[in-house]
């Protein structure tokens, strides 16, 4: 490990925090995205419409704004509701904001992926007497991933970089660690360049992994 005026281990800690934030947000974001996609396709009009408005809102607002509203808004709400002080910590607020935004974008990807499954297959499944839930579980869900993967991959790359925004709520991820190292060592360009290289490295590794997994998901299928 390069020493970086002694701040190497600190930056590494920042990288781990960034990855942890991104991984937890990815997990929750996929669940939110799936739920939102299903809600948007549901026949319950008000639900579909409401979720549609909410996801559009979250996709449109700058992530920074979403994070700040969640961090301060929910905290003030909690202070009003609970007598005891219940803290919304930075990690929770950061993950909540990032996964909500990720989920909103992912819901569109998932919706597209569900729609991409040939209708004939669903009709065939129904004519076998499968219930709508069985159709969803056996036919739609397993195949949807194949169509959704490229879109999700792009969202993951965006998510990694968006983690740098949550430093405003006091989380010590890579970007915040970079800024701290900068203020102590007074050599900003070294540290900002290193941060850029680390992010690029994460992106390159993710891209290669995604390519591999996409290839795997297409095994035995002729696409296009």
């Amino acid at each position: 490990m390069i020493d970086l005026q002694g701040f190497g281990p600190q930056l590494l800690e920042g990288v781990l925090m960034t990855l942890r934030l991104a991984a937890v947000s990815l997990f929750l974001g996929i669940i939110i995205g799936l739920a939102a996609a299903i809600a948007k396709m549901s026949s319950i009009r008000w639900l579909a419409r409401g979720v549609d408005i909410l996801t559009n809102l979250l996709r449109g607002l700058p992530e920074l704004l979403t994070i700040l509203i969640l961090y301060y808004g929910v905290q003030n709400l909690f202070n009003a509701i609970f007598e005891d002080f219940v803290e919304v910590d930075g990690f929770t607020a950061g993950v909540a904001a990032l996964s909500l935004v990720f989920g909103s974008y992912a819901s569109e990807t998932f919706r597209g992926a569900f729609l991409a499954i040939p209708i004939g297959q669903i009709e065939a499944a129904k004519s076998f007497g499968m219930s709508p839930f069985t159709v969803f579980r056996r036919i739609q869900l397993p195949q949807m991933w194949r169509y959704a993967l490229p879109g999700l991959g792009n969202l993951w790359l965006v998510l990694i970089k968006d983690t740098s925004l949550v430093s405003v709520v006091g989380l010590q991820e890579l970007m915040r660690k970079t800024q701290i190292a900068t203020s102590v060592t007074k050599s900003p360009f070294t540290f900002y360049s290193v941060a850029a290289l680390i992010f690029i490295a994460i992106t390159v590794v993710s891209t290669l992994f995604l390519r591999w997994i996409e290839k795997k998901s297409r095994r035995g299928v002729r696409m296009g």
Binding site: F78, F85, E87, V88, A96
Partner: peptide, 8 residues
């Protein structure tokens, strides 16, 4: 999501 939330 307040897994990290705790009373003071």
């Amino acid at each position: 999501l307040t897994s990290g939330a705790y009373a003071q």
